[in-house]
Design a binder for these strands. Structure first.
Lengths: 252, 252
DNA sequence: GTTTGCATAATGTCTGAACAAAAGAACATA
DNA sequence: TATGTTCTTTTGTTCAGACATTATGCAAAC
């Protein structure tokens, strides 16, 4: 009925039937944008499936393929016979345990700084491909950050983002990373699968972190997943072991 | 081909087209049973979709509706052009539900050995006193264990026990430590507060672990608490970083 | 006024079919 | 030996349509 206007706004243009990107993923992207739109955040119903289908020129089945996932991520709620709308925001995480580095620091009232920030586009090698579950050679964004306190950097971070997330490279990476993901991209990390090991500083790390070669470095690799168990980010952190200890409480 | 036998075993009977339970849910149930079947846990491929479809008398789409979810739960893995099989249980060193070292190893079917076991009585120094919340100079038991696989030790453990526990020094430390605590001393560990860092091997560790001096060592200090938040054990583990990675899943 | 029942609107389930894309095997070529 | 080339197998994607199920509003019946 009154949805017409918005449906027009749906950049149907952005659906590219010739793109190698499957339609259901393109639809998912569009839906995520809609979820972002304040218009739909006030409990207003999304266009109904049949309309979406017609307007985008995509079968209803394919539309549902996309919405199914978003429903699973609890971004959308559907009710039979009624409609689909954006889910009420979950009670903003009182994430006791894991938060991003800057949030950790922030919470402790510690002044952290970014010494270097670099964004680049790279092709996935074997390791990245395995961790992010993408094909080898897949293009994706790499984010490098050298961070620390006023007295100097103490961690060097390298992040790789799954293309699905839609990082453009123009984000303001001074902000909390997971803030960006959550609010700009509606990608909510709920699981972090971490592997921690010890290595010796090679020349590169030694220079970056300002330590002698062969110093002890705490290496933390982690893959961060969304509620649908899909990988979002593969992150490797190299910490000066003399200035950083990884702490965690494990309950059973 | 050779799947025929199993497909017969698929109680196709259990599909009830008149049931109010949607077919895709019934299929999911059947698949979950298959996943539990040891037959399929050894990397054997599940019947292909088209066969399942035929045998169960259900369209391939509906089959996929069910498998999609199981793939999402990472119970199944599919590969285009190849097939679908039960996902490898990824129990590397998952401390998600944390257990003791030997239990971890045991669960993975790995043969671990004790290379050295030594019990002694010592007086608490400043560090131990702080961690175990006892007075400095307090007498308590120290347990040292050098452990590893058949190819040699890869971790050196030092444990200090709070006197409250009542360790006598005559326990059989070949048993699972937390078994002893739980069954002999009715002391149940429920919280582990861990600090992980990287250090370089000193001469002592180098000899014990059979690595060169200044190799990378992963150091894990942890205090284990009982349900009343009272410290039970202070444990320091020195791991050969080339043979051990600390893995953990953090959910929020 | 309250209930009952019916029409309507929306999502849920299911089908059969077609073609695309990836992996692997078999084979051929340089 | 190494490298393409082609074929087969199996999952991945997409479609169009049918019918089921649930919620809601409205109208008729009590």
């Amino acid at each position: 009925m009154s949805e017409q206007k918005n449906i027009q706004n749906l950049k149907s243009l952005s659906i590219d039937h010739d793109s190698p990107v499957p339609l259901h993923l393109q639809v998912e992207k569009i839906l995520r944008d809609m979820i972002n739109d304040p218009e739909y955040q006030n409990g207003k119903f999304l266009p109904k499936e049949v309309d979406l289908s017609k307007r985008l020129g995509i079968s209803r089945n394919t539309i549902r393929q996309a919405t199914n996932r978003l429903v699973q991520e609890k971004l959308l709620t559907r009710k039979k016979g009624v409609g689909t709308k954006v889910a009420k925001k979950q009670v903003e995480t009182k994430l006791s345990n894991w938060v991003s580095f800057s949030q950790e620091m922030h919470a402790q009232g510690i002044n952290f700084r970014n010494y270097e920030i670099k964004v680049s586009k790279i092709k996935a090698d074997a390791e990245i491909s395995e961790q992010l579950e993408v094909k080898e050679g897949q293009e994706l964004f790499k984010l490098e950050r050298l961070r620390g306190l006023d007295n100097g950097p103490f961690v060097y971070f390298v992040s790789y983002f799954h293309p699905r997330v839609g990082i453009t490279g123009n984000e303001d990476f001074e902000r909390h990373l997971y803030d960006i993901l959550e609010h700009e991209y509606h990608t909510i990390p709920v699981l972090s699968r971490e592997q921690i090991s010890a290595i010796l500083a090679n020349k590169f790390l030694a220079v970056k972190l300002g330590v002698p070669i062969n110093s002890a470095i705490l290496q933390r690799k982690r893959v961060v997943y969304d509620p649908g168990n899909r990988p979002i980010e593969y992150n490797i952190g190299y910490y000066r072991a003399d200035q950083f200890t990884y702490s965690i409480d494990i309950k059973r």
